[in-house]
Design a protein around this nucleic acid. Structure first.
Lengths: 108, 108
DNA sequence: GGAGCACTTGGCCAGTTGGCCAACTGCGCT
DNA sequence: AGCGCAGTTGGCCAACTGGCCAAGTGCTCC
């Protein structure tokens, strides 16, 4: 396992970690529909604005979103559109996992 | 934001968290090619077998892999084939993020 | 049955994460 | 200039993660 290969997995993991939080997923989903300022997202997820701001900076560091200041507000938008398609894949994962659970319950 | 919606994001996040680790990504990538026993994966990632075993149970809990005992060995295989396609999406994310970095450096 | 793999599980520890509060910056309005 | 809103940052704390070691299970082969 050479360093270059290991590096690739670390980079992938960094992007995944950025996505792997319910609030951040919710925001990404919303930003896929339209750009939003921090205050709108804050209301949506129902947490402290400072918390939401930190979530957004995590998404930004991962290269997933863009930000643009406009007056007093900061508007965020989704940079990586293929994220939406990948959610469909995720739903598939979740569905088969759920079926597995059902199976296990049904056996006895 | 109703509970059902919130639930969906939590489930998605659980699957993503299961994927969001370099060693687990490496294993998923390998299992996409062929099934492997724990000892082979252990050698591949270069960690303690107990560590690898725990990683695998995380992937299993997320419904991402299947396991099958055969004699003394336990063979794991990838359950969710669409994961591979989603990695291409990830590469895209990483590429545009890298370009962004280049841009920032090039400006000055 | 006993030795020796192949795994899994529990325990422990260090490092990371996620939340809120409080303090600060910066813009817009009067 | 001064107030107030929008946002970011630092500090702190509780909870979670990931690693190794050690102990336990279960199979195979002698």
């Amino acid at each position: 396992m050479d360093r270059k290969t290991r590096n690739r997995y670390e980079t992938r993991a960094r992007v995944l970690k950025a996505l792997a939080h319910p609030s951040r997923l919710m925001m990404v989903d919303e930003l896929a529909r339209q750009e939003r300022c921090v205050c709108e997202l804050t209301e949506m997820v129902g947490a402290d604005m400072s918390t939401v701001s930190k979530h957004l900076s995590i998404l930004r560091n991962a290269g997933l979103v863009d930000m643009e200041k406009r007056g007093a507000q900061v508007y965020y938008s989704l940079r990586v559109t293929c994220v939406t398609g990948f959610f469909h894949c995720l739903e598939e994962v979740m569905r088969t996992a759920a079926e597995e659970q059902l199976e296990l319950v049904a056996i006895r």
